[in-house]
Design a protein around this nucleic acid. Sequence first.
DNA 1: TTGTACGCGTTATCAT
DNA 2: ATGATAACGCGTACAA
Lengths: 334, 334
Amino acid sequence: MQKKITFDDIAKYTHFSKTTISRYFNHPETLTEKNRAIIKDALEKLNYHENKLAKVLANGKSEFIGIIVPNLSMHYYAEMLSHILATYQEFGYKFLVFESNDDPVMERQYISELIAYNIEGMIILSHCLSSQELSRLPIPIVTIERESQFLNGVTTDNYHGALIATSYLQSLNCDILIHINSELTPENPDYERTHGFLDVCEKEHLPHQLIAQYLGATWDETNTIYEDLFQQIDIKYQGQKKGIFIANDTHANIFLNIVYRHYRNLPEDYNIIGFDDSSISREALIPITTVHQNIDTLSHAAMELLVDQIQNQKSKQLIHRQVEPSLIIRQTTH
Amino acid sequence: MQKKITFDDIAKYTHFSKTTISRYFNHPETLTEKNRAIIKDALEKLNYHENKLAKVLANGKSEFIGIIVPNLSMHYYAEMLSHILATYQEFGYKFLVFESNDDPVMERQYISELIAYNIEGMIILSHCLSSQELSRLPIPIVTIERESQFLNGVTTDNYHGALIATSYLQSLNCDILIHINSELTPENPDYERTHGFLDVCEKEHLPHQLIAQYLGATWDETNTIYEDLFQQIDIKYQGQKKGIFIANDTHANIFLNIVYRHYRNLPEDYNIIGFDDSSISREALIPITTVHQNIDTLSHAAMELLVDQIQNQKSKQLIHRQVEPSLIIRQTTH
DNA sequence: TTGTACGCGTTATCAT
DNA sequence: ATGATAACGCGTACAA
């Protein structure tokens, strides 16, 4: 492994000064065309590779953005990360990625690592640190689809999503509407799914049940919990046309599987709507009707907000951007 | 945003020199306990935050590892990335992540970005640059589950995986064995799945068909292709018990869906085995029999190889580590 | 248009 | 046990 070539080497080789070499990269227009050619030549001959770390130390701009996702086993987060990484083409930022796995202690450590590397900003998708705590950090932060009272953030318009899902179930003339979600507080954007559901049901005087409870941390646990839920629902509303709006596609798919295993098909009186339009909803054996989250728009909006914050350091007032979802009708509703 | 505190500030505050402050972190045992306490105090009072970039410039160790994945829409890669990120706890390396999307031009750019940041090593999961080209780069590299003739790499023992899958189908007394995979060359580890299938069929004189062709780049395209394949298979082998070994779970799930849509169930004469044991195989409406890839072991082995290479710079001979898969029998085989 | 000199925040070497 | 000084590789006044 040969010694690394630096501006000094290029300078000696071309009989210019380091400064001129630096200018070749940062202000090429101040060099004569001839000298530019000479330097270009030397760079190739000596096989120069830039050292961005030295650059960062000198000018402060690391072009790093830190990302903390809760996990990557959920397709939703993997897809979000994918879209964020893709913004490299537009913005040029490189991404340092951490998975928090809902561990606040580790998350704090990840954050201090990130700050130690002079990241210019952070995108937070995990839920385990409050926006109040995060807002005290000395770098621009944008959240995606999480509590964000003290930080800029983007979310899907979950209320509207719940509204169109619930209204669609109503239009199907369901006898009973059911919503399954975790126990949430109003600060959590997901709560708006519950909120929207309840609002429609109450305004329209629709028979309904809200199931708001712990839904498991692993796939197996979740599966077990939904098996219980299915038993209850199946008995309680026997013979009635059920419209079941479930908090996300992964859970909707689990529920669908359980119904199917029990009946060897999806009975006409079961109508299921998920949320997210994640790939599982499309790839499920019976493609699942769901509320489409525009992940592309969400992640792009997040990056726009963040880049803006980075460039105009002034901490103006908070911005919360909402992205409109839409209903994707597939085959779990009849 | 207050000015950043540096060793200089701490030094002035404590009336020590910068050197001593540095030693506090790197060789604390050479300080008296009293002075350690003084410095510790000052660090807290002034709210010092370390600057790793400066550290890197001074000692060369960035603690960065670059990762290039083909994409994150495929659960397999997302899960692999997840396990790699988790090794932070053990090895302390931070990860710069890029998605290549099978674009060799972009991948080369990503790599030069990574090198510009003094990464200490790279893990390559994408397929679009040859190991020969990659081997010329001036940093340690480990590949996972891809062509790796000129580089250290880890792969699942695909041959053995194919062997147990095919043998199982044989034990089910299938009339015809079919393997569906992309057109591959022997350098590609996935080719071993085809190889293993053919070997068993030929040794045991089993009627078989190898379908080795382009299988699409998007979900929709893949779906269309498999619909064609299903039509052909369904007609050609009507009434025969079919054992279909498909290159991966995503494809197996697509195929399963197509069969189901056609027959409204999975007929007894259809036996499907996937590969990977990715979450879709478990979450499919009919859980898919598959070959389990130990992603945890794979990614950990990759990191071990890489860290070893980083620490013992000498380029010894190539190491290719293989991880044993196992058969997970679920409900798509009878 | 080009060069000099210093700064960025650490670590390493050699003193003391 | 502690300090002075020179790296590390690049950017940027300021000068010429």
